[in-house]
Computed example of a mutant assay.
Amino acid sequence: MIPQFRCPQLSIVLLATVLSFLTLAPGRSDDAPPAGKKTFQDVIVARQKDLLRDAVQYVEQHPDAADLDEAFAWSFETARRFGLEADALPMSERCLKSRTTSAANKSAAKQVLCVGLAKSGKLKDAVTAFQDSLQFARFGAVGEPLDLAVELVAQAGLAGEHGTAKEIYRTLSNRFGLNPQVGEFCENRLRKLDLVGVEAPELRLTDLKGDPASIADAKGKVLLIDFWATNCPPCLAEFPKLKQLYADKHEEGFEVLGISLDDSPDTVDAFQAQAKLPWRMVCEAEQVRQAREKYKVRTIPSLFLVGRDGRIAQVDMKGNDLRRAVERCLAEK
């Protein structure tokens, strides 16, 4: 049996409380940690890479093993959880050639294949694989294709291929043209992608402490504008990694400006204090409305990464992809 490591999942209800005393380190599967900066998460990811390598070797040496499906399932789950899709490419290719593996494993293999190719620098092949996978997607099952599109768009953004990112959303929208939710989602994402490369629209804001805040204040720094709310689970789920990223990169010139869509500033103030989020927050209804209009924000979470030159470098990056994007922007003097 192939060994595995399982991380406990945190309840969203408890997230603010957990954040008050614990900051989770993000995975660093794509780049080695700086000297002296190794974290426990780095140890975990390194171990998972070793185990994944062992799993690939096991399948290659035992192609008719009775527990082959278990090996495939563990490998794909691990690859997705720790951002190791590129390492799992041999496993995904072997799974797709298998005539006996489960449909669930086949589906997971296609996702890992697409993301793994993109992370390996083969974005064109990844997009082709994505388009092929859509041919067999069921109209009512849009969750997996949508999640996969978001991941591929992130990789396209990191590669500077924003035109390809738009193509991915257009392809998804065309495939599920009769699904209004998918169409609206893609349309919203395309609007925000249109902002990449342009100067970040100026905002005149007042933070929760009553101090003025603006985009110009961060000129020469790297700024993440985060549209969020306390009743948005995906927004809250990103805070542990974002908090760690801020701690790691703030002294290098990384800033975060939170723009909350909550109705009550008191709610946001209480959450910020409990979660110990160190960046500035804005929650004034009219200012938020204007900010949403300028940044074409219809849904949350919506994130905009502004480079040192004041131009929008990336949109809707999260997790390890956001860390990589921030590091690249900080490196541009």
Score class of each variant (00 low, 15 high):
residue 143 G to A: 15
residue 143 G to H: 15
residue 247 A to V: 08
residue 152 L to A: 01
residue 180 P to G: 07
residue 216 A to K: 14
residue 149 A to I: 00
residue 179 N to R: 10
residue 125 D to N: 13
residue 207 D to I: 10
residue 211 D to T: 10
residue 253 G to C: 05
residue 196 V to S: 01
residue 197 G to D: 09
residue 185 F to T: 06
residue 214 S to R: 08
residue 257 L to C: 05
residue 261 L to G: 01
residue 143 G to I: 15
residue 229 A to F: 03
residue 194 D to V: 05
residue 165 A to C: 15
residue 205 L to Q: 03
residue 202 E to H: 05
residue 169 Y to G: 04
residue 202 E to D: 10
residue 150 V to D: 10
residue 213 A to S: 14
residue 235 C to R: 02
residue 186 C to H: 02
residue 158 L to P: 00
residue 268 V to T: 06
residue 259 I to R: 01
residue 195 L to K: 06
residue 204 R to C: 10
residue 219 K to M: 12
residue 243 K to V: 00
residue 189 R to V: 02
residue 258 G to L: 05
residue 179 N to F: 08
residue 221 K to D: 06
residue 219 K to T: 12
residue 198 V to L: 09
residue 211 D to P: 07
residue 145 P to I: 10
residue 201 P to M: 04
residue 244 Q to N: 14
residue 251 E to L: 01
residue 207 D to M: 10
residue 177 G to V: 11
residue 160 G to E: 02
residue 189 R to H: 09
residue 247 A to N: 13
residue 237 A to G: 03
residue 155 Q to I: 09
residue 205 L to W: 01
residue 171 T to A: 09
residue 239 F to A: 02
residue 218 A to V: 05
residue 183 G to P: 00
residue 141 A to H: 10
residue 150 V to E: 11
residue 141 A to E: 15
residue 217 D to T: 02
residue 266 D to S: 13
residue 170 R to I: 08
residue 257 L to F: 05
residue 261 L to T: 02
residue 176 F to I: 13
residue 211 D to C: 08
residue 242 L to C: 04
residue 167 E to V: 15
residue 201 P to N: 01
residue 212 P to C: 06
residue 219 K to Q: 15
residue 204 R to T: 06
residue 214 S to D: 09
residue 156 A to Q: 09
residue 155 Q to L: 12
residue 242 L to T: 05
residue 265 P to V: 12
residue 140 G to E: 13
residue 180 P to L: 04
residue 265 P to I: 13
residue 139 F to R: 14
residue 257 L to R: 01
residue 134 L to H: 04
residue 194 D to E: 08
residue 230 T to A: 05
residue 132 D to M: 12
residue 179 N to Y: 07
residue 263 D to W: 11
residue 184 E to N: 14
residue 185 F to W: 07
residue 265 P to D: 05
residue 258 G to A: 07
residue 265 P to S: 04
residue 240 P to F: 02
residue 163 G to Q: 10
residue 227 F to A: 01
residue 133 S to Y: 12
residue 196 V to R: 01
residue 261 L to I: 06
residue 129 A to P: 04
residue 222 V to Y: 09
residue 208 L to Q: 03
residue 131 Q to E: 15
residue 188 N to S: 08
residue 147 D to W: 14
residue 183 G to R: 02
residue 187 E to D: 14
residue 130 F to E: 03
residue 229 A to N: 04
residue 196 V to T: 04
residue 157 G to S: 11
residue 255 E to L: 11
residue 247 A to E: 13
residue 133 S to E: 10
residue 137 A to F: 05
residue 228 W to T: 00
residue 214 S to W: 07
residue 161 E to L: 11
residue 208 L to H: 06
residue 207 D to T: 12
residue 240 P to S: 08
residue 233 P to V: 08
residue 130 F to R: 01
residue 218 A to P: 03
residue 181 Q to W: 00
residue 131 Q to R: 15
residue 164 T to G: 03
residue 155 Q to C: 15
residue 194 D to R: 06
residue 175 R to P: 02
residue 207 D to G: 13
residue 147 D to S: 15
residue 151 E to C: 12
residue 190 L to N: 08
residue 200 A to D: 04
residue 132 D to R: 11
residue 149 A to G: 00
residue 223 L to I: 01
residue 174 N to S: 15
residue 123 L to T: 15
residue 122 K to Q: 14
residue 250 H to K: 10
residue 268 V to W: 00
residue 124 K to T: 13
residue 156 A to T: 07
residue 198 V to Q: 12
residue 195 L to V: 06
residue 242 L to P: 00
residue 172 L to H: 09
residue 173 S to C: 08
residue 142 V to W: 01
residue 242 L to V: 11
residue 220 G to Q: 04
residue 175 R to D: 03
residue 260 S to E: 02
residue 128 T to R: 13
